[in-house]
Computed example of a mutant assay.
Amino acid sequence: MRRPSELLLRFTRAERWVHRTTAALMLICLATAACLYVPPLAELVGRRRLVVTVHVWCGLALPVPLLLGLASRALRADVSRLSRFTDADWAWLRAARTRAAERRAGKFNAGQKLYAQWTLGSMLVILGTGLLMWLTHLAPPAWRTGATFVHDWLAAAIAVVVAGHIRMALRDREARRGMRTGLVDRRWAEREHPEWERSAG
């Protein structure tokens, strides 16, 4: 049994709720997209109209958890951390490139920041292109064709990146515990996020 002093609060309840809800919506969008575009899955599932409806509404809801979560001071602070690179982040990228063991990192390392920024950007693009495809009166046919192309290929890229994210999470039990309970072991924080561990007290 760990003593309370050995644990650090990494994520509040609001932050965990935003992560879980966004992840659930994203996975539903990817699963329904697969059912729409992969013929064997489309035949297995059927009910195309229902699948399209679920896909559209989950896609429209994607930004909602983050927007609601911004009411949380802790989430706003993390958004600020994720949105800017520091000297430690550039050092982390150099260390990752050379496979150095020691990598300086704050609460989030450079890889996590890049993933978060890419996810937010791709979410906005996928939402915008989806709206052009869904609301056909908003744009001429040429725009809708371009939107369909971007939407489909970006969805494939998102699937690959999300799979990589899940793979990384499966390799780090303590990081998963932090997202599940909000608490992490101080020794893990000292090893993986030393600058944050020191500032966390």
Score class of each variant (00 low, 15 high):
Arg3Val: 01
Arg3Ala: 02
Arg3Gln: 04
Arg3Thr: 14
Pro4Thr: 08
Glu6Asp: 15
Leu7Arg: 12
Leu7His: 10
Leu9Met: 04
Arg10Phe: 08
Arg10Gln: 05
Arg13Glu: 13
Ala14Leu: 15
Ala14Pro: 05
Arg16Asn: 11
Arg16Ile: 11
Trp17Arg: 09
Val18Phe: 06
Arg20Pro: 01
Ala23Asp: 04
Ala23Met: 03
Ala23Ser: 04
Met26Cys: 07
Leu27Asp: 07
Ile28Trp: 09
Ile28Lys: 00
Cys29Glu: 03
Ala34Gly: 12
Cys35Asp: 05
Cys35Leu: 02
Cys35Lys: 03
Leu36Val: 10
Val38Met: 08
Val38His: 13
Val38Asn: 08
Pro39Ser: 09
Pro40Gly: 14
Pro40Met: 09
Ala42His: 13
Val45Cys: 04
Val45Pro: 02
Val45Ile: 13
Arg48Tyr: 09
Arg49Val: 13
Arg49Phe: 08
Val51Thr: 15
Thr53Val: 11
Val54Gln: 12
Val54Phe: 09
Trp57Glu: 00
Cys58Asn: 06
Leu60Pro: 06
Ala61His: 00
Leu62Asn: 00
Pro63Ala: 02
Pro63Trp: 05
Val64Met: 03
Val64Trp: 09
Pro65Arg: 01
Pro65Asn: 04
Leu66Glu: 04
Leu70Lys: 13
Leu70Ser: 13
Ser72Pro: 04
Arg73Phe: 12
Arg73Tyr: 07
Arg76Thr: 00
Val79Gln: 06
Leu82Thr: 09
Leu82Gln: 07
Arg84Lys: 10
Thr86His: 15
Asp89Lys: 05
Asp89Tyr: 07
Asp89Ser: 10
Asp89Glu: 11
Ala91Phe: 01
Arg94Gln: 12
Arg94Gly: 11
Arg97His: 12
Arg97Glu: 14
Arg99Gly: 06
Arg99Ile: 00
Ala100Gln: 15
Arg104Gln: 12
Gly106Pro: 01
Lys107Phe: 09
Asn109Arg: 01
Asn109Ser: 05
Ala110Glu: 10
Gly111His: 14
Leu114Ser: 02
Tyr115Thr: 04
Thr119Met: 11
Leu120Gly: 04
Leu120Val: 15
Leu120Ser: 08
Ser122Gln: 06
Leu124Phe: 02
Val125Phe: 05
Ile126Leu: 05
Leu127Asp: 01
Gly128Trp: 00
Gly128Ala: 02
Thr129Phe: 02
Leu132Trp: 02
Met133Pro: 00
Met133Thr: 04
Leu135Tyr: 03
Leu135Gly: 03
Leu135Ile: 10
Leu135Asn: 04
Pro141Trp: 06
Arg144Val: 01
Thr145Leu: 14
Ala147Met: 10
Val150Trp: 09
Val150Leu: 14
Leu154Tyr: 14
Ala157His: 08
Ala159Val: 01
Val160Trp: 13
Val161Arg: 12
Val161His: 12
Val161Lys: 08
Val162Trp: 13
Gly164Met: 08
Ile166Arg: 09
Met168Cys: 09
Met168Glu: 14
Leu170Gln: 11
Arg173Cys: 01
Glu174Lys: 03
Glu174Ala: 06
Ala175Thr: 12
Arg177Gln: 15
Met179Gln: 07
Arg180Trp: 13
Arg180Leu: 03
Thr181Gln: 08
Gly182Met: 07
Leu183Pro: 00
Val184Ala: 10
Asp185Ser: 12
Arg186Leu: 10
Arg187Phe: 08
Arg187Tyr: 14
Arg187Ala: 15
Trp188Phe: 12
Ala189Val: 02
Glu190Met: 05
Glu190Cys: 07
Glu190Val: 14
His193Phe: 05
Pro194Phe: 10
Glu197Leu: 01
Arg198Tyr: 04
Gly201Ala: 13
